[in-house]
Write a protein that binds this DNA or RNA. Structure first.
Length: 478
RNA sequence: GGCCCCAUCGUCUAGCGGUUAGGACAUCGGCCUCUCACGCCGGUAACAUGGGUUCGAUUCCCAUUGGGGUCACCA
C-alpha cells in the first residue's frame, strides 16, 4: 500500500511550489489507490501561525487535493520524538551535547578568522562526555566520518553523498523540539510513509535522513525529488514576482483544475498533451515522465491553461462554472440567481480567461442599466443610428419564438429588405444593449436579455442617439 | 569554497544513436467575422562549448562553461 504525505510548515500562505509538491504526492496516492497523509510541521514556534495553517488547509481544499489522514500536527507529538531520541542515545547512535549556542558560535568565528572559506564542523567535543544533570543539552546524531550514503531517486536516479559532507547534526533542540530531519523521519516512520516526494531543495536532507532511518532500524522509504520552479529572472519564486499563493489564484478567478494542470506540466509531461482533466492526470501520471531540470514560472502560459479549461464544458461544466463565477459577479454588487448565472455562461465560454473576466463580460446581463462606455456611445449612438435601432426593435417585437437562430434569421431578412448589411446596425445595437463595443454575439445577447429588456434598451439607445447631430459623432450629450 | 544536482526554441517540453529536431504558450503574418473572442492556415525561433566512443551523436562518456540547491538548537 502506497502511503505518501505532504508536510508543509505553517509559516505563510501555501506557495504554488508547495501546491506542486502536494499535487505530485496526491496524484501518486490516487493513482496507486494509496493514502495521502497531511502533516503540519509546526516545530518552528517563532514562525508558525494558526492563520498559515488555515490558509494551507483552505488552499488544499479549494484545489481539491483531499487528504485521507491528518492533519497531524508535530507539536502534538513531542513525546514521541523525545522517546525516539532517548532510544538513540541509549544505543550510542546519538549523544547529548552540552555546548551552548555561544560556544559553538565562538568556535565558528574562530575558524572563519583563520580561513574564511572553511566550513564549520561540529568538533565532537561532547561525543563521549558524561551526562550532566540539570544542564541543557541538544541531542546530536553520531555521524560516521567514513563511507557514503547511496539511494535511488525516482526522478534523479542514483545519488551518492559522502558521509564526510555530514556532521553530527542536531536531532532534538534543548527545548525538546525536534529539528526538521528528525521530526520528519520519526513521523514518516510512524505514519508508515512508503515514498517521500518533495522539492529538490530537500535533496541534501535525504542522506542524513537515511542515516536516521537506519539507526532506528526502520525501513527506508523511496524518494522522489522535484526540480525547482523559479521566477523568470531565475531567482527563487517569491511575492515580488507576482502572485505565488494558491489563494491568490482562487481570488483572481482561476479554476482549481487549471492550476493543477499548469503545475503538473511543470516538470512532467505526457507526450504532446497539454490539457488534462483531473482523472486524465491520475491515469497518466508517473515518476518516469518527470524531468530533472529546473524551470521558470510563466504567468502567460498559466493564464492560457486556465482559459483552455474555462472554454471546455468537459473540463468545467456549466453548473460548476456558474457556481464558481457567481461570487465574482456578486463582488460587483450584482445578485443574479445561480440559475440565471448558469444561463449566461454560454455567452462567455470561449471568451473569458478567468472568472473575473467572465463576470466583467457578463456585467451588462445582470445590471438593469448597463454601464455605458463613453467612447462607444459617442461613436455609435449617433443620430443616424436611431432609425435602425427603432426598426430593429419593431422587427423583434413581432417575434414569437425567441432564440438566437430565429433572431439571426429575422434580422437578416429585415436587413435584406432595407438593402443594409448587418455591420451597419450591429455596433449601434451592441452599444445600446451592452454599453460596449465588444460583447458576445449580438443574436445571443438579444436572446439572453429577453424581449422586453431588449426592446427597452434599444429604445433607450435610440433616445440617446437622437440627441446627437447626424454624422457628428463627437458631440457631448445634451 | 565543500558536497549534491541540472543543461533542446523567449518559456514549459517531446526526443531515449540515424528525425526536414515535434507540440504548447508567447510572438509575427493571413483567413473566418456583427464587435470581442473561438477556430483555422502559415512564419520567426533551440540541441551551451571542447574532447572522446561510434559507420553515425541532441541522444552515451569525460572535461569546461553556465545555472541551481544546501552547508543552523529554520523547514
Amino acid at each position: 500500500m502506497t502511503r505518501v504525505r505532504f508536510a508543509p510548515s505553517p509559516t505563510g500562505y501555501l506557495h504554488i511550489g508547495g501546491v506542486r509538491t502536494a499535487l505530485f504526492n496526491w496524484l501518486w496516492a490516487r493513482k496507486t489507490k494509496g493514502v495521502f497523509v497531511l502533516r503540519i510541521e509546526d516545530t518552528d514556534q517563532e514562525r508558525s501561525t494558526e492563520a498559515s495553517k488555515k490558509a494551507i488547509l483552505d488552499s488544499l481544499e479549494w484545489l481539491g487535493l483531499d487528504w485521507d489522514e491528518g492533519p497531524f500536527v508535530q507539536t502534538g507529538r513531542l513525546a514521541i520524538y523525545k522517546e525516539y531520541a532517548e532510544r538513540l542515545v541509549r544505543e550510542k547512535k546519538a549523544f547529548r551535547c552540552y555546548c551552548t549556542k555561544e560556544e559553538l558560535e565562538a568556535q565558528r568565528e574562530e575558524l572563519k578568522k583563520k580561513d574564511p572559506k572553511a566550513q564549520f564542523r561540529y568538533p565532537g567535543t561532547c561525543r563521549d562526555r558524561a551526562d550532566e544533570p540539570n544542564k541543557p543539552f541538544v541531542v546530536r546524531f553520531r555521524t560516521p566520518s567514513e563511507g557514503a550514503v547511496t539511494y535511488v531517486d525516482k526522478v534523479f536516479g542514483e545519488i551518492t553523498t559522502p558521509n564526510a559532507a555530514q556532521q553530527d547534526f542536531v536531532l532534538l533542540r534543548s527545548d525538546g523540539m525536534p529539528l526538521y530531519n528528525f521530526g520528519a523521519v520519526v513521523d514518516d516512520v510512524s505514519m508508515e510513509i512508503t515514498l517521500v516526494a518533495r522539492g529538490r531543495d530537500h535533496m541534501v536532507n535525504t542522506p542524513p535522513q537515511i542515516m536516521i532511518y537506519e539507526a532506528l532500524g526502520a525501513r527506508v522509504p523511496e524518494f522522489a525529488h522535484l526540480p525547482m520552479m523559479l521566477a523568470q529572472s531565475g531567482e527563487k519564486l517569491s511575492k515580488r514576482h507576482g502572485a505565488v499563493s494558491a489563494l491568490e489564484y482562487r481570488d483572481q478567478g482561476y479554476t482549481p483544475n487549471a492550476v493543477l494542470n499548469y503545475l503538473v506540466r511543470f516538470g512532467w509531461s505526457h507526450g504532446d498533451q497539454e490539457i488534462f482533466s483531473k482523472d486524465e492526470l491520475i491515469a497518466a501520471f508517473g515518476w518516469e515522465a518527470c524531468g530533472r531540470g529546473d524551470g521558470k514560472f510563466d504567468a502567460k502560459k498559466f493564464l492560457a491553461v486556465n482559459h483552455a479549461h474555462l472554454k471546455e464544458q468537459r473540463l468545467v461544466p456549466d453548473d460548476d462554472y456558474a457556481k464558481r463565477l457567481l461570487p465574482f459577479v456578486e463582488q460587483r454588487g450584482l445578485t443574479p440567481t445561480l440559475a440565471a448565472t448558469k444561463e449566461a455562461v454560454p455567452l462567455v465560454r470561449e471568451r473569458a480567461t478567468t472568472f473575473i473576466d467572465a463576470a466583467d463580460r457578463l456585467d451588462f446581463v445582470f445590471r438593469s442599466d448597463p454601464v455605458m462606455d463613453e467612447a462607444a456611445t459617442a461613436k455609435f449612438l449617433v443620430a443616424d443610428a436611431a432609425p435602425h435601432l427603432r426598426g430593429l426593435a419593431a422587427q423583434l417585437e413581432g417575434m414569437t419564438s425567441w432564440n438566437a437562430q430565429a433572431i439571426d434569421t429575422r434580422m437578416h431578412d429585415w436587413l435584406a429588405e432595407l438593402g443594409l448589411e448587418i455591420k451597419h446596425v450591429a455596433q449601434p445595437a451592441r452599444v445600446a444593449l451592452t454599453g460596449r463595443t465588444a460583447s458576445p454575439g449580438l443574436f445571443e445577447v438579444i436572446a439572453a436579455l429577453g424581449k422586453s429588456e431588449t426592446l427597452r434598451r434599444l429604445s433607450r439607445g435610440a433616445t440617446l442617439a437622437d440627441a446627437r447631430d447626424p454624422g457628428r459623432g463627437e458631440k457631448p450629450k445634451a
